[in-house]
Design a protein around this nucleic acid. Sequence first.
RNA 1: GGGCGUUUAACUCAGCUGGUCAGAGUGCCUCCCUUACAAGGAGGAAGUCGGGAGUUCGAAUCUCUCAACGCCCACCA
Length: 878
Amino acid sequence: MSKTKLDKSYNWNELEDHWYQHWLANDYFKGDSNSNKESYSIVIPPPNVTGMLTMGHVLNNTIQDVLIRKARMEGKNVCWIPGTDHASIATETKVVTMLESEGIDLESLSRDEFLSHAWEWKEKYGGIIINQLKKLGCSCDWDRERFTMDAGYSKAVLESFVQLYNKGLIYKGHRLVNWCPVSKSAISDEEVIHKEKNGKLWHFIYPISNSDDCLTVATTRPETMLGDTALAVHPEDNRYKHLIGKTITLPLVGRKIPIIGDDYVDPEFGTGCVKVTPAHDPNDFLIGERHSLEFINIMNEDASMNSNVPNKYQKLSREEARKAVVGDMKNEGRLDKVEDYTNNIGYSERGNVPIESYLSDQWFLKMDSLAKPALELVNSNKINFHPSHWVKTYNHWMKNIKDWCISRQLRWGHQIPVWYLNSDPSQIHVSVEGPDDPDNWTQDNDVLDTWASSWLWPFAVHDWPNSDENLDTFYPTNALVTGPDIIFFWVARMIMAGHEFLNDIPFKDVYFTSILRDETGKKFSKSLGNSPDPFDLFKEYGTDATRFGTMLMAPQGLDVLFSNDRLEIGRNFMNKLWNASRFVQMNLDEEDIITTNLDELSLDLPEKWIINRLNQTALKVNKELEKFRFNEAAKAIYEFTWSDFCDWYIEIAKTRFYGVDKQKAKESQAVCIFVIKGILTLLHPYAPFITEEIWSYFKNDTDKDLIVSPWIKGDKSHQDINADDSVDLLKQIVTAVRTIRSSMNVPQDKKANVLIRGVGENRSKIEAFENIIIALGRIDKLTLADEIEKPSQTATAVVQKMELFVPLKGLIDLDQEMERLSKRMNELSGHLENTEKKLANKNFVDRAPDNVVKHENQKLQDMTAEFNLVKANLDMLQ
RNA sequence: GGGCGUUUAACUCAGCUGGUCAGAGUGCCUCCCUUACAAGGAGGAAGUCGGGAGUUCGAAUCUCUCAACGCCCACCA
């Protein structure tokens, strides 16, 4: 920057890009796989390649950037690997929508043609979110950016399939799966969202063959009766058990189907009699297997009726078929009644339509043997969850894990590396490269579930299995930062994959972020349109303020109600920091002050105090960040900067800057710079842009850019109780004077005299601060005395057993003063009562630790003294 | 049905291994545009820490219980 002075206000829109480009140009973000320094690595949870930056991303990636930037400043070999996920089903849906809108006939497209459209689309839109992350300030190693369908990555995915297949963990099964009729593909259990819906319960009357008797059956899905192959009752149900073994003629279809007895049926529910559709319901499927029933698939892939149903229903959608079936049953007099009924319906997460249980050939991965070691890794704390209560959720899922349906009937994704011999499809070939004579073989049409590629992310980004170089340096990663909503989809599976393929953990710590909600508690989501556009916020508040504000309001593991005025806290803080820095800068006597070494100075108590407080803040920030308490660390920096440095030390420093003692002025300037640089260092991970900008004005010749400057650990052994106590006394006196002035409505420009009685051993301390107290309290004359008569018409206060008199001739309002003193007396007597009670309790004195008892005694003494003085002063007024 | 979480000032929330007179920001009241900052400064009002019980010398904090709200998982046609 060519400027030598900080601008009057911080113009983030100009400076953010400048610094980001500067960091990139200096290669600060790059990890070094040949370094022998301690490494620190994170892999980004790859956003969907179709994605746009949301507030969720802001939260998630700011946290990662905080960890990464701190580690970098600690001098570690840092590597944050970015990338995107091909998001098979989500992306394919978008591409299909686009092609349809362009009037392109999907049916006429070959697989390759479709894929070339998809890649075109990816090239066009795939980079958006990456650029958005750069705007956010993420210090990722962009040279290592990965995409889950990159050539190398794809090879890793196929490799993993082949390995698992060869171990016998992958099998093909003809099973009921969750079927999304929109994407015409199987989906996993985790991709099914259950929604409560108001539906109906239809009661149908079925005639029993060769009999006049009937059975009434309740169903929520009338259309599936076209695929019924049995009726089931409980074997012990006295109403029906004599019917077991008989048959009924299925109305509308004419098929004769048996009445069977099965424990699954709950006699209490509905009519106690269930229609069984083995090909379209998971429970019925199991009944069907137990009783060797016929499995009749009645639907096409889009959930319309197929040729296995009577002609008149064929090609009807499931909704139309339901209407038709109900109408026809009613016409035949077989509709007994219709009840309202609320039930949970599974919806496809992507297609947002009810799923079908659908019979099809799919590839499955056996999970039991993978889950066991992964469970152990977390429960033995080799991997730590933050907050830890997520371990229970993890355990529950892992202990009830089911085989994973990994095949999808899509085109965008990793095509399953299985080939069938054309002349005999029962012969299969499984390998990464495919068969030698490809003309005789046909590859499986399906692709893999997206998560069956992203579960390899922590090591596949490093060219596994081809190269070890980066893996040796950057694997296992240190931390994973992600949302608890993908604990099953992704986190659990990465742990399994890490153990399976590399026999190691993929990360040491997992931090689960908060879920962001709007003011009314609704989850931010694209479909609700209630998520603010982060870029509007960056513009309005600045990226640093958005990052800082978001961190401040994101306590560990709780949902967060997001609102813009939280970001104002961040913006105001950045403004405060900017102005404090500007103030210090404009008061520097000489430029070379920035090179002053504090060790060469003999500092006064206020200087020692603020340096001490900075050290304590650094210790606190380190401690909280180690525990992933980002909000607490942010708060510590905020409070130190605002309350200690700006509110007190800068005000004290003014008395130095404008005083006659030039040496003190210089010392104070040096201390201000030291403290500001400390603040900038601690704040940099949260607010990288503004801190780097201010730093550039304060750095000296040996300083590097802030992003790579040394982190402050804090020094546990450094303490200065004397300085703390002294400044504490100073603050109490000044505050007492200010309170009196304020409550007596003394105008700002009117100076008051202050007398302090009973100074005793405090005299030297106060004398050392005299000019500061006079300035901050707007005092004309300060008189210190051990014994002195109380002036008339004076307001009083008690500070550390000293009486403070502020004579206010003509200004004092007796009633107000009496009220003020009475209030304080009441407060004190309340506390005194409690303390006395405590100390009178023999059990307390005997059993509580000495220091606690001692403290209570001290409290009693101090408060009694203050009480007596306040009372005496009050009495004099009456 | 099973599990997890939340309940602290008017609002949004901190408060960690039980022990300073329970904190912050916003809002509210009073005063101040004092040459770093009105996106600011000084002062102030505001809380039986969801209800109840228990453990303890001592509970916002630990245990139990009840209530309200939220989330996750499972699911009977």
